[in-house]
């Protein structure tokens, strides 16, 4: 097989793994935001959220 094959496969696999990481971080954040919004809608919120005080 030509060198181009190994180079292309290397860049594609690195890109695929990097994309997977980005998607994991993004989807995880979206999921947690939705979960927090659901809890807030149910009237469950952090005590500090009332006073603006830090955790």
């Amino acid at each position: 097989m030509s060198h181009a094959f190994y180079v292309t496969l290397s860049y594609l696999s690195a890109f695929g793994i990097a994309l997977g990481l980005v998607l994991w971080v993004w989807l995880d954040h979206r999921g947690r935001q939705k979960e927090l919004a659901r809890l807030e809608a149910a009237g469950i919120r952090r005590r500090s959220a009332h006073s603006g005080e830090a955790q």
Binding site: V25, R32, E35, L36, L39, R45, R46
Partner: peptide, 27 residues
């Protein structure tokens, strides 16, 4: 820089995850 960007964002997700579990426990 890619690593540090992902790291701070993953840390943010982890903080939110912990807040959610504390809220659920309180509820």
């Amino acid at each position: 820089l890619f690593f540090f960007t992902l790291h701070v964002l993953a840390m943010r997700n982890e903080i939110l995850r912990r807040r959610i579990s504390v809220l659920r426990r309180h509820a």
